[in-house]
Design a protein around this nucleic acid. Sequence first.
DNA 1: TGTTAGCAATCACTACCTTTGACTGCTAAC
DNA 2: GTTAGCAGTCAAAGGTAGTGATTGCTAACA
Lengths: 348, 348
Amino acid sequence: MGTDNLSERKQKILKAVVDEYINSASPISSGEIKSKHFGEISSATIRNELSALEEMGYLIQPHTSAGRIPSKKAYTLYVDKFLERQPLKKEEIAFIENSFKERFSEIEDLVRKTAKVISDVTNYTSVIVLKNINKVVLKEIKLIDLDAHNLLVVIITDSGIIRDKVITLQSEIDARYVKDANAMANKIFAGKTVSEVRNPDKLIETEMSEFRELYESIVAILESYAEKVDETVYMEGQSKFLEYPDHDLNATKDFLAVIDTKERLAEVIDDNSDIEFSVRIGKEENGGIEKCAIVTAKYVLNGKEIGHAGVIGPERMDYSKVMSVLKCISNALGEITDGGNDDGKRLK
Amino acid sequence: MGTDNLSERKQKILKAVVDEYINSASPISSGEIKSKHFGEISSATIRNELSALEEMGYLIQPHTSAGRIPSKKAYTLYVDKFLERQPLKKEEIAFIENSFKERFSEIEDLVRKTAKVISDVTNYTSVIVLKNINKVVLKEIKLIDLDAHNLLVVIITDSGIIRDKVITLQSEIDARYVKDANAMANKIFAGKTVSEVRNPDKLIETEMSEFRELYESIVAILESYAEKVDETVYMEGQSKFLEYPDHDLNATKDFLAVIDTKERLAEVIDDNSDIEFSVRIGKEENGGIEKCAIVTAKYVLNGKEIGHAGVIGPERMDYSKVMSVLKCISNALGEITDGGNDDGKRLK
DNA sequence: TGTTAGCAATCACTACCTTTGACTGCTAAC
DNA sequence: GTTAGCAGTCAAAGGTAGTGATTGCTAACA
């Protein structure tokens, strides 16, 4: 999808319409564009251009005597070509950096904080989806005996995420069993991804035979985490969704329906593309929410991509600011996790 | 707050108005009451009674030529005096019982499921708030060494809730240290409530001196859990909120604002009263949500009250059904946790 | 050929009016 | 204390007219 060979002037006018519409949320007239962007040419000329842009599918006229509003196509072009990375205000940068000054002992707290900061600075609803556990590498498995038949299994991944679950075994558990099982489990699981573990080779099968019951329980835990992403979705600022006039009752209904089932939300946010920012505009691309756009970036910690972070807002959202905020947070996170000893540009 | 000595007939009429309004959501006229509830007396007589009830503060007339709608006072009276426990449909009971047939290895899963079932059967948004950890009794503390300076602290309460957190210590950790610390920690913490631990007596202080750093870390964890109830709030069916015409944009805004900060939500749900069902009607009592009511019941597992469960819905909600559902779920939960060997009436 | 001014046409929006129908409150009779 | 009857009230719905913003078109202009 190129620029359709839009003339310099058409591009400038189109950009003006989108800019103005992002500000005002109401249709933009030819006169408005003239007075705010083009002192030189007349509104009639601009009208001609607008008419042409409409024919090309970039603009929409709600009714004959109204101004124009951008179409999805216009937003897409705008994000692709016209967006100038507008710098954040000093206070905003300071706020973000201060927010991550404190020490976080667990990733979960840090993620929560990140979501809060994104929402606070952008004033949109923020969402962070941690990567499906299928793709992460297991670092260690700890077994702790609770009583004669119950074990607490603690799963630690290489990116520091910790999950635990109690399992109940038929066989009696003693200290010796736990010790042996622990050693065995780590031999089998450590360094593997979850999906590798889920489809074990024959070798593992035989090695683990002594602890078959335990082995199957652990795999079951991993399976269940792999299936329900429920616990890896973080949201902040849900109520901000209603601060935008674009979001009427219908849009809100769609919105609530999506955030209601976190699985759906995770699907929407967690795309597989490898680009810096993913911008999805329009109902078809955002899980069915009317007049909404979703901007996400990779969420990188300790040099590892652990998920995606972004915002849900109106189509006419301040894309530039959102991207700047995500970028700035990415830098701040880089500094935390590396102790500031690299350029911090981890979220690419 | 009594019945204000309402005559038999006034009570009957008032109940009719509330019943009808719960069904139709639009003002109830004298004629409607006559045709549906009182073949014998004329609409004029009913009008007289309605007028009296209005003067007493039970009814509200949106405008002169409209029917009446119940006031908060009427709903309260209705819930207190008129509510007949209407039995659930067979399918509903079967659905609830089936939902809890499966085995839940962790409380968290069971709570989530409970929330889902409440929301599905009542068709309102459900909320479950687990009790503030301050009030629960610690059963055991497990320390697991991750590496030379990091310990995983697992806290197990008597109701089976498990929480864990990684702490970083200055001093070097070896197997011996962990073993001793473990023994000491359990001596100190086991059997106490969190609030007792937060205000330790001198004896504990001296006993723990050898592990001061560790001790302080554990207390800090407990403190932080006690302060942020964030992780103990479960919701289901948020989108159902919009299915009721009473809930317009404003109410939705209030609603989102409340559920946005889970602390606020917890405050609203988790009352300290000791009654079977808590019904809060009206903005003043429900955290500021317009035209909403909140019905909650104690959430009891293994004979212990671990929190509150309930629904958020319109003022004109089907109180009877909600209460029946909560009761039925309570029974089903009792059967799970006791293996069915008592009358199961645990949620009182 | 591209640009412009001018002008009629379009249409949402608002205000205002009328009609309709659903109630009520009151009164007088039972 | 109850009822029928009737005038009064008011929201909701529908219609009309006026206003203002904005466009598309045309004809003149550079």
